[in-house]
Design a protein around this nucleic acid. Structure first.
Lengths: 192, 192
DNA sequence: TTGACATGTGAACGATCGTCCACTATACTG
DNA sequence: CAGTATAGTGGACGATCGTTCACATGTCAA
């Protein structure tokens, strides 16, 4: 029973998600339901041609971009058509999308409501990058009196203010030098 | 010059991020700066003992959990200490954290402001899962008149209403059967 | 200095890897 | 039906894999 490349790809994805690596040709015998490595070789060759999987410089198999990515369909309220072919859908991994400098990136869970008007709620996770230069309008996490706080960074005439996104709080004007722990580069909220 | 396990681990992470796979023992010769595979074998053994890298059932090396994860440090406004040892920090990958059913998950970019009071702004990415049963209070994307719209799902006395999180819009009461395209399981906002 | 221990070297080993080839089975065409 | 691609079988092959061995070197304390 001949199967389509997409079905083979699905098997590979399943394996990859379970094992966190690509299967060997021998293992693909079972996955694809064939009995000779030559058959596997051809299938792999075809998938490689279609860029569904890749090979590195040493010839080893690597997962294609669609292996971990999430499908991005389009815009809400745009009345878009749902693409039928999985290949036509753009895919991204969230980690790739959000994180640029892996080593200096870390996360914090938000516990206050001082940034509520900026759409950052208690319980949200904020992605921070250490060492970035804060620009006007950025949201930063700063250390004040051995406490960390999250505010808008505002610089006017050389004076820095930390402004909350909540009318019930006041802006903070740092007396001594300002210790910025990180610049907020993303916000993540999980519902369930 | 003897190096610490953490330095070896850093080399492995670098390699893994570039190649998307674990290096072979031969390749580690160069990475670790040693000349015999036996030396590599011991280093790998130690890293495995410390659970910094793993082996699958076939004995192949797999990346440890910290290879792709982002460090989670704690809560804002809690005045937490910054952990010095990288090993002590919990790490998560966003994809793992947010996505449960990979196949039925997709993303949309939000273009309206009808959910602004729920902290969902235009330009945000929403993560949707197809086929989940909507519960009261969930945010859903539904198809109305061939248009997709995002609203709170509200069910009272068997009647379903779609309620926006913006006072300037009205609730929608679906006339015919309601077509729910997906339930919002997460929101992601990228600043820069 | 001597002994004990940790760590690295270099080589040998069987196992598994992916490629390749000759051959067979199946499907399609005229 | 014969003729011709297309796809799979089964095995041989060299390359590379990770393991393991005996041995050399380095380090530290007695």
């Amino acid at each position: 029973m001949p199967r389509s490349p997409i079905e083979y790809l699905a098997e590979l994805k399943l394996f990859y998600r379970e094992e966190a690596r690509m299967p060997s040709f021998s293992e693909m015998l079972g996955l694809f339901g064939v009995k000779s490595k030559n058959a596997v070789s051809r299938i792999v060759h075809e998938l490689t041609q279609n860029k569904l999987i890749r090979r590195d410089t040493k010839g080893r198999l690597l997962p294609g971009h669609s292996f971990l990515g999430i499908k991005v369909l389009g815009f809400i309220e745009a009345g878009f058509p749902a693409p039928a072919e999985e290949q036509l859908v753009d895919t991204i991994t969230l980690d790739e999308y959000l994180v640029q400098n892996h080593r200096d990136t870390f996360m914090l869970k938000v516990s206050g409501d001082s940034m509520i008007d900026a759409g950052i709620q208690p319980g949200d996770l904020v992605l921070l990058e250490r060492g970035r230069a804060a620009r006007n309008g950025d949201i930063v996490v700063a250390e004040i009196d051995h406490q960390w706080t999250m505010k808008y960074y505002e610089k006017r005439n050389g004076k820095v203010r930390l402004v909350p996104a909540n009318k019930r709080y006041k802006a903070i004007i740092p007396k001594e030098r300002l210790l910025i722990s990180g610049v907020v580069i993303a916000v993540v909220r999980k519902y369930r």
